[in-house]
């Protein structure tokens, strides 16, 4: 709920900014050359659901015990290719997405008088998720109305590489020597809305188009479910999450 409130406030602020620029806000529907490529950069909180694996058994929380409950963030990028545009409706694109997040904490002493206490050794978990996506954008709103908003949904198949490290490099389990890295497959679902920044300053947008070849620039917010819990696998670590993301998109 806090996240929802936060993002609602953000969009409220953007709307207010738009209103503040009413005298330069151009409500003319978008007419533009065909845009075939979209590049996105996103940023958001990410908390791998590692501990969910034990929710119905030992209730252990190895992730929380090592890294705590503080928020970590993920950065990511995506490139979409629009292969179909339906007039008065929207477009379909195929895209590829990749992200990166890392959680760090302290390894705990295993024995002795300080057993269980944090040591000087750094423990970390890196997650690199990636996915192939089908993206549907409903751009009729931005093209044919005065509201520069484009709702969209994404659906795809992906995998996340993960790597556990300590002071000596990649972890090796003390119990059986298993190497501490792997991958987890899963599905990706996303729903969001893009705000067309061109509407705030058409002249700058035109200049950007002429000089850099960027037809449109967007600010977007989305809710993403990355279900990297082991699709087509057994014994996979759940490194997925459900979270909000913010980002910028450029259509070229």
């Amino acid at each position: 709920m806090k996240r929802l409130a936060g993002f609602s406030a953000l969009f409220g602020a953007l709307a207010a900014a738009g209103a503040a620029h009413a005298q330069t806000f151009d409500a003319t529907p978008v007419k533009d050359p065909d845009s075939t490529i979209a590049v996105e950069m996103r940023f958001g909180a990410y908390h791998p659901n590692v501990d969910s694996e034990f929710a119905n058994s030992s209730h252990a929380t190895p992730y929380k015990d090592t890294f705590g409950g503080s928020t970590r963030f993920m950065i990511g990028g995506e490139v979409d290719w629009e292969f179909l545009h339906v007039e008065h409706l929207g477009s379909l694109s195929l895209g590829g997405w990749i992200g990166y997040t890392k959680a760090t904490g302290s390894a705990k002493f295993a024995s002795g008088p300080n057993a269980g206490q944090p040591s000087a050794e750094t423990a970390a978990l890196q997650v690199i998720p990636m996915a192939a996506l089908l993206v549907a954008r409903l751009d009729v709103v931005a093209r044919e109305t005065a509201f520069p908003l484009i709702p969209y949904v994404k659906f795809g198949l992906g995998t996340a590489w993960w790597n556990s490290t300590n002071g000596s490099g990649t972890s090796i389990a003390d119990s059986d020597g298993t190497l501490g890295r792997g991958h987890s497959n899963g599905l990706v679902y996303t729903g969001g809305v893009m705000f067309l920044l061109d509407a705030l300053d058409r002249q700058t947008a035109k200049t950007f188009q002429v000089q850099q070849g960027v037809n449109h620039t967007y600010l977007f917010a989305e809710w993403t479910v990355t279900a990297f819990d082991g699709l087509l696998q057994t014994n996979a670590m759940n490194v997925g999450d459900s979270t909000w993301n913010l980002g910028f998109a450029f259509e070229m």
Binding site: A107, A110, G112, S164, T165, S171, I172, G180
Partner: peptide, 8 residues
């Protein structure tokens, strides 16, 4: 000293 990291 021996420690327990996340993977352990």
């Amino acid at each position: 000293q021996q420690t327990t990291d996340f993977f352990d």
